[in-house]
């Protein structure tokens, strides 16, 4: 029973990693690529690590429970840091006016109410 859950978690994790890789390779611009990398990477890492934590519980003892708790702690840290890092990279790209992909021909720069990259001391 435990094996089935572990296999399901690992396969789902690998599936999402595969999606992340394809997204990173095939999406048209910086922002969509970061979107694929940030979301898929976080979710698949957590699925894979949860699978490992569960697999570790085959021999139930205080030691293995401790190791599993440590793995789950890594999950928590990844859950906090990975989206934040994606956000920071994305924000830096927006500030430095990275062009985004669109089907329309006239809009080559990001359009929003605040003009990106306009520093106070320029």
């Amino acid at each position: 029973m435990l094996d089935i859950i572990v296999i399901a978690l690992m396969v789902t994790g690998l599936f999402f990693f595969f999606g992340t890789t394809i997204g990173l390779h095939r999406f048209p611009d910086f922002y969509t690529r970061m979107h694929a990398a940030g979301k898929g990477d976080t979710l698949s890492s957590i699925l894979l690590l949860s699978g490992l934590a569960l697999y570790n519980l085959h021999h139930l003892s205080p030691d293995t429970v401790q190791v599993s708790l440590k793995i789950m702690f890594i999950c928590v840290v990844i859950f906090i840091t990975s989206p934040t890092a994606t956000h920071a990279i994305m924000d830096a790209g927006y500030e430095s006016k990275v062009k985004y992909w669109t089907r329309r021909k006239d809009s080559s720069a990001p359009q929003s109410s605040i003009e990106p990259g306009k520093g106070e001391d320029t």
């Binding site: 934040t84 956000h87 920071a88 924000d91 830096a92 500030e95 605040i114 990106p116 990259g117 306009k118 520093g119 106070e120 001391d121 320029t122």
Partner: peptide, 11 residues
């Protein structure tokens, strides 16, 4: 030129 929202990213 400095980024506009430097040092104010709440996330």
């Amino acid at each position: 030129p400095r980024p506009q929202r430097e040092g104010s990213d709440i996330i």
